[in-house]
Design a protein around this nucleic acid. Structure first.
Length: 523
RNA sequence: CGCGGGAUAGAGCAGUUGGCAGCUCGCCAGGCCCAUAACCUGGAGGUCGCCGGUUCGAGUCCGGCUCCCGCAACCA
């Protein structure tokens, strides 16, 4: 049995989730559900980063003084938001948890043993925006190019450094030999360029007196671990690294890290370099050939704008995903995010587009198809699934082969994280056939509502083939719209243990009265 | 030489390895009546930002150019 381990980044708890963080998390949930449905042993982790200075600032801004209470409350908000939205993660990590501290400690020591941690009095410029130090060559006119309007703070303090530069060549080799390591392709080029030009040693600690959050450096309580160094290790924490070797050996490495494009460098350069270093002294991080176990893929998705505008809390357009639920249902929001924007590209989250997709794709095409098919079946076949025997191809909408074509398209695109194309295959079909759109056309062409008066057998064949088709479609949709899928199956008289082989729908099955799947939006 | 994204029908977008330009909405005309005023058909509407190049053939590859968007802070 295959295993599949997918992660989201851990989010800062300085605010509640919005549609942006929801996007990553939904994508991970879809992948996890997809792999579970194929029978893979699946681990889906998400969580929060509690060790950042940003959290402290947010707390102070809210007038609170008890950091732990603040972290507890905010972490709970994140966790319960995902739960309320029906996202099924297997583990939720907080970077203040004992298991994380254990993982970080073990990891730090492994890197240290490799000789890749050294002390240095750092005299230089710190960019608060980046939470990182800048070298002379990285500044433009004495400013950080990413944050040109903020002054760099001159800092002189003792820090621990990670000898990242030692892994430059190994990283480039890894990139060359593993075309899927960084996706999409454009990001791979970006990271290659970054490693070649700018990848240097990282400061991985700050003086404790300068920061009020963070994990103490093992054996040096005057220093706190720099937030990114500890944050990345969360991906190991959730596998049991530092607490459960057996479990860790089973799950690590991650099959895919889903991230936003802004944190590409940390995941595709710093993180693998850290792992290469630690692996030298930690057998848990090596494979059977003695090579470091690095994440198989890192997939960076794009960013949305909201109605054409950048997400901005000061503009107040950072939509709380829960606010959309009463109107659309969360499944429709999931569908929209993944269908509308090619994963990896930037896009716009516009409510008018959401409405359009909802009305056309979901209510009119999918919902209406299910409704009309069930209604006819009930009406003409005594409330039951009609007999399946048919014979003439012209009275059969789909068959084993047609379904397989759709499934293959879905599988291929899921593998590539092209959720938009996977969904498009379901709606528009493959090679111009077997899409939901074709099913509506098929009804128009064969006219079962007329044919039932003269040829009940043909009518039964028509309706059976669409019902059975819809049963399988509902299973294919399950990772994307779990709740809708379940409601569809129920309307077809099925349980969720329904399987993907053609012919699973039993003629004579009682069909309950159809219920509108997506209610029309009024206004 | 700071980084990245984009320019395709009125609007919003797809176009994976180069092979007669597609989708949704909107507009016009028609059909149907099983269904959520839903469904189906046909039509109008594009010099695929500009200029060169490679090719039998380029939205798609190569070179150059123009314009737009994001990169203080909050922020995936």
């Amino acid at each position: 049995m295959k295993k599949f381990f997918v992660t989201t980044p851990i989010y800062y708890v300085n605010d509640k989730p919005h549609v942006g963080s929801t996007y990553t998390t939904v994508a991970a949930d879809v992948l996890a559900r997809y792999h579970r449905s194929r029978g893979d042993r699946t681990l889906f982790s998400t969580g929060v980063d509690e060790n950042s200075q940003k959290n402290v600032q947010a707390m102070e801004k809210s007038g609170e003084t008890d950091l732990q209470a603040y972290l507890d409350r905010m972490s709970d908000t994140w966790k319960t938001t995902w739960e309320e939205l029906g996202i099924v993660f297997d583990t939720f990590v907080r970077t203040t948890e004992p298991r994380h501290l254990a993982a970080v400690s073990r990891f730090w020591n492994a890197v240290k043993q490799s000789g890749d941690i050294y002390e240095s009095v750092y005299e230089g410029l710190y960019c608060v925006g980046c939470e990182g130090f800048k070298t002379e060559t990285e500044t433009v006119d004495g400013k950080c190019p990413l944050h040109p309007n903020s002054e760099l703070s001159p800092v002189k303090e003792k820090n621990y450094f990670f000898r990242a530069s030692a892994y430059r060549e190994a990283l480039l080799n890894h990139l060359d030999e593993n075309s899927q390591f960084v996706q999409p392709e454009s990001r791979r080029n970006e990271i290659r360029n970054y490693i070649t030009e700018h990848f240097t040693d990282f400061s991985i600690s700050r003086e404790a007196k300068q920061v009020s959050a963070g994990i103490p450096v093992p054996e040096d309580s005057n220093q706190r671990i720099y937030v990114w160094f500890d944050a990345l290790i969360n991906y190991l924490t959730v596998t049991g690294y530092g607490t459960d070797d057996k479990m860790c050996a089973e799950w690590w490495p991650a099959d895919i890290h889903l991230i936003g494009k802004d944190i590409l460098k940390f995941h595709c350069a710093l993180w693998p370099a850290m792992l290469m270093s630690a692996a030298k002294n930690d057998p848990l991080l090596r494979d059977e050939n003695g090579n470091p176990k690095l994440p198989t893929r890192v997939f960076a998705h794009g960013y949305f704008t909201i109605n054409g505008q950048k997400i901005s809390k000061s503009l107040g357009n950072a939509i709380d995903p829960r606010a959309l639920v009463p109107t659309y249902g969360f499944d429709a929001v999931r569908y929209f995010m993944l269908r509308e924007i090619p994963f990896g590209e930037d896009g716009d989250f516009s409510e008018s587009r959401l409405t359009e997709r909802y009305t056309h794709d979901l209510a009119n095409t999918l919902g209406n198809l299910l409704q009309r098919t069930i209604a006819m079946s009930r009406k003409y076949f005594d409330g039951k699934v009609p007999p399946s025997f048919s014979h003439e191809a012209k009275y059969t909408f789909a068959d084993e082969a047609g379904i397989r074509a759709i499934r293959n398209a879905v599988d291929t695109n899921m593998e590539a994280c092209r959720f938009d194309l996977a969904l498009e295959a379901i709606w528009s079909g493959v090679d111009g056939a077997h899409g939901l759109l074709h099913a509506n056309k098929f009804i128009e062409d064969t006219q079962p509502f007329k044919l039932q008066k003269t040829d009940p057998t043909a009518t039964g064949a028509i309706l059976y083939s669409i019902l059975e088709y819809l049963r399988i479609i509902s299973l294919l949709l399950a990772p994307f719209m779990p709740d809708v899928s379940e409601r569809m199956l129920k309307q077809l008289g099925q349980n969720t243990d329904s399987n993907l082989s053609w012919g699973g729908l039993k003629p004579g099955t009682e069909l309950p009265e159809p219920v509108v799947l997506f209610k029309m939006l009024n206004n």
